[in-house]
Design a protein around this nucleic acid. Structure first.
Lengths: 157, 157
DNA sequence: GACTTTTATATCGTACACGATTTAATCGCT
DNA sequence: AGCGATTAAATCGTGTACGATATAAAAGTC
C-alpha cells in the first residue's frame, strides 16, 4: 500500500522538528531503560541484549538459536556472535542438535545458571524506576503492542 | 538510590520471560517504526538517524555538531562519522566555526536542501501507518515522555 | 600572562542491528 | 532413491550506539 498525502500533511511538521516524532519518543524511552539497566547488569557482566537471552535460558534452557531469536526478535547474524561472547564468559554451552544437525542448542553452564540469582532483583528495580503502578504499566504495554502490530501490518501491505 | 526488593518482587517475573518486559515492548515498537521508515527513506539514500539529523538541518541549518547532538540525543562519537557520511553523499558541508575553532558548523549543500522536498511526504505516511488519531498519538507521547523522565531521574539518584 | 579547567570534537574499541550471501542439513515430491 | 526447495546457522559488510580517551581551543584563575 502506498502512502497518499492528505489534508493533514501540512500539520504533521511542527516548528521543532523533533517535537511531533512519536518514533523519537520511543527511541528516547528505550534509551532511558538501557541506562537504568546498565548499572544493574554491569555487576553481572551482561549487556541488555545478553540479559534478554539469559532470561529466556534461565526460564527454558536448553533452547536453539532460532527459538531464542524468535523470543527476542533477533536473527542468527546478531545472535551468533552474542552467544559466542556468552560462551567465552563461561555462561552458556553450544552444541549441534544430534537429531537435526542444522540446529545449535544453547544450554546453561553451572556459572550461567548461578548467575540467575544475582539477576533476581533486576525486574523489581526496573519496576520501581518506572514510577508506575503495574496496572498502569500494563495499559501502556497494551497500547505499545497495538501500535507495533499496526505498524508491521502497514508495512506488509 | 539503591533498589530494595519488596513484596512485589515475586510477581514481576512471569512464566514467559518476555511477557512483562515493558522495555522489550518499547524496543519492539521502535523496531517496527524503523521498518516502516526504511522503505520510505531508502529512495532518499538516508538511514533513520541520518534522517533525524537532516530534519533538524532542513529546519534550522546551519547547526553545530553539539547542537545537533542535543536535539537527537547523540554525541560526537556517533555523530561525527554519521555526518561525514552525509558529507560524502554531498548533502551537508562541515567547517570550523571561525569565532570558536572548537566548534564544527554543519550546513546544507544545494543537494541536501533539495532533498527536503523528496522527504516531505514521510511524516504523513508514518502517521497513517500508526493507525492512530493525532490526539491519541499525542497522549501516548505524553506518557512516554513522562516515563522517560522518571527513568532518567531514578538513574541519577 | 602562564596555568588549570572546561568545552567541543574526534578517535578508538566493543557490541549490537540487519540486509545479503553462504553452507550444510533436512524436507518434499515424484 | 534422487533432487530441487526449504530451513538453520554462520559469515560478511555497513551503520549505528556508547564508554573511554585524546586533542585542541576557549574560559577561568591567580
Amino acid at each position: 500500500m502506498r502512502c497518499m498525502d492528505n489534508e493533514l500533511s501540512s500539520n504533521v511538521v511542527a516548528d521543532d522538528p523533533m517535537e511531533q516524532m512519536i518514533c523519537f519518543d520511543l527511541y528516547a524511552a528505550s534509551q532511558a531503560f538501557t541506562r537504568v539497566y546498565k548499572p544493574l547488569l554491569e555487576p553481572l557482566g551482561l549487556t541488555y541484549p545478553q540479559y534478554l537471552v539469559m532470561l529466556n535460558l534461565w526460564s527454558d534452557a536448553p533452547l536453539t538459536v532460532g527459538e531464542i531469536g524468535r523470543r527476542v526478535s533477533l536473527e542468527s547474524n546478531t545472535l551468533t556472535p552474542l552467544i559466542k561472547r556468552l560462551q567465552e564468559a563461561d555462561l552458556v554451552t553450544r552444541r549441534r542438535d544430534p537429531a537435526d544437525e542444522r540446529r545449535v542448542v544453547v544450554g546453561l553452564t553451572p556459572r550461567g545458571h548461578a548467575l540467575s540469582e544475582q539477576a533476581a532483583h533486576v525486574p523489581s528495580c526496573i519496576l520501581q524506576a518506572t514510577g508506575m503502578e503495574p496496572v498502569e504499566l500494563a495499559d501502556l504495554q497494551r497500547r505499545l503492542r497495538g501500535l507495533t502490530s499496526r505498524m508491521l501490518t502497514y508495512n506488509n501491505k
